[in-house]
Amino acid sequence: MMTLGTAIAFIGASLAVGLACSGSAKGVGCVGEAGAGVLSEDPGKFAQVLILQIIPGTQGLYGLVAWFFTCMKMGFFAGNLMELTTPQGLSLFAACLPIGIGGYLSAIAQGRCAAAAVSLIVKRPEEMSKGIIMAIMVEFYAILCLLATFLMVNSLI
């Protein structure tokens, strides 16, 4: 018999991975669109465009990490699902929110930044490292979100 708390915790874990992956998909897609335009002019820039394109993909992975970690803590993989009380479930739900919301929004912001870096490498390919650095600045906030989620889930159960 599954408790309400466990169910709520599952919603949280699902939102963590679902939102973060949606954001990453949007971000990666946005860079891909800009990149395809560049490639039509200069197919030789494929490697550079690809590097920029994967940058906003990390949030999705962080979301997956958070989902995985939460499910593992709840005993989902080991087969002995914990029976969480409702307050416990709600707090796990809350703990999952940072990477869900932060991952979703930061991936989109990072995607736009990386897409701008794609147009940078059209004009000045030698300045690519600066474009990457600017996109990576956004990454920091996704890492903070993952950290917050991780520390909370880690100490809650």
Binding site: V65, F68, F69, F140, I143, L144, L146, L147, F150, L151
Partner: peptide, 13 residues
């Protein structure tokens, strides 16, 4: 602190 933890946490996962 945050980045030190981030490296370790992702490595552990």
């Amino acid at each position: 602190m945050a980045l030190m933890l981030a490296t370790t946490v992702i490595a552990n996962v």
